[in-house]
């Protein structure tokens, strides 16, 4: 009797081990495969913006800067949208909230390649014809926006990413908002606060850490998203010149070049992968920290 139990426990433990082993394995593999690139370029690989396969020169800066820019562009609209949507979903009666939150959750179910197609065939022409001419009329816009007017670029990619990360952030924020003790909330209403004031002074204060955690989860998603960005970012190996200019991100670079690369270029691509792993593990660790403080569930489980 006891023996089968011990064996069962051992088997279960063995099955749980890959979770712990995968990350170190991945780091090790990326490190060993990118050794050549680090050896050749040193740390200056990180801020060199040259990417010239013919001359054998590679730098990570176009990818890193592009990744940061698309992520930032995605977060600016997505955070307020996700928060206000989550607020509405917690305030309305449950017969309305349930279908609405399921609908928002379905946004996360649509595969990223379909967002990419939609961006390529619908959003990019729209940006080119209507939005970018409008933006170009703003004073000083060439500095901010770059001179491209193709419809592709960081702004388009960021908008699609915003749509893609919204459901994840919204789900976590919903959890966090509904965890505010009802007593605190009712007390605020009791002294005459409006809904806005209750939200600002009670809900936001109480759930701030969970909300930051939710933002981190969205950040991690946006950082590593490949397909949707690949379709609309333009894929040229140059650091961003402006919001509407074409460029690349780390994930898009990997997807585009990895299959044909060999030698030093492949090693440089592995080095880019290493940079992406480090960035996203850092962000996930931040998300873990904040979400554990509040005890909120991650948005990915049901």
């Amino acid at each position: 009797m006891q023996r089968t139990d011990k064996i069962f426990r051992l088997v279960c433990l063995l099955c749980a081990l890959p979770a712990a082993l995968l990350l170190p394995g991945m780091l090790l593999q990326l490190l060993s495969n990118s050794a050549e690139a680090w050896h050749t370029f040193g740390l200056s690989f990180l801020w060199s913006s040259e990417w010239d396969p013919a001359a054998g020169k590679y730098g990570a800066w176009p990818g890193i800067a592009g990744t940061l820019l698309t992520t930032a562009t995605a977060l600016v609209p997505a955070v307020p949208l996700a928060f206000s949507a989550a607020l509405l979903l917690t305030e309305v009666p449950s017969w309305l909230a349930k279908p609405l939150s399921h609908a928002v959750d379905l946004l996360a179910a649509i595969p990223s390649v379909i967002y990419g197609m939609w961006g390529l065939f619908v959003l990019a022409p729209l940006m080119q014809e209507h939005v970018q001419p409008l933006l170009a009329r703003l004073p000083g816009s060439t500095l901010l926006l770059g001179e491209d007017n193709s419809g592709f670029g960081f702004l388009t990619a960021g908008l699609i990413l915003a749509l893609m990360i919204l459901p994840y952030m919204c789900a976590i924020m919903r959890d966090v908002i509904s965890m505010t003790p009802p007593m605190l909330r009712e007390a605020a209403y009791g002294v005459g606060c409006t809904c806005l004031e209750t939200t600002r002074d009670i809900v936001l204060r109480h759930g701030l850490r969970g909300i930051i955690g939710g933002i981190f989860i969205g950040l991690g998603r946006a950082l590593g998203e490949t397909m949707a960005v690949l379709f609309v970012v333009g894929n040229i190996m140059e650091p961003p010149a402006g919001l509407c200019s074409c460029g690349t991100t780390i994930a898009a670079t990997l997807a585009n070049n990895f299959a044909e690369a060999d030698g030093l270029q492949r090693s440089a691509l592995f080095a880019l992968g290493l940079v992406l792993v480090v960035m996203s593990v850092g962000i996930q660790a931040g998300a873990q920290y904040y979400l554990r403080l509040t005890g909120a569930k991650r948005g990915e489980t049901i």
Binding site: A19, A20, R221, L254, G273, V277, S280, V281
Partner: peptide, 18 residues
């Protein structure tokens, strides 16, 4: 648990690379 959570958030293209 933390390791699994971090794994869930890793970009899927890196898993392809791995």
């Amino acid at each position: 648990r933390s390791a699994a959570n971090i794994m869930m958030g890793l970009p899927s293209i890196l898993i392809g690379l791995f």
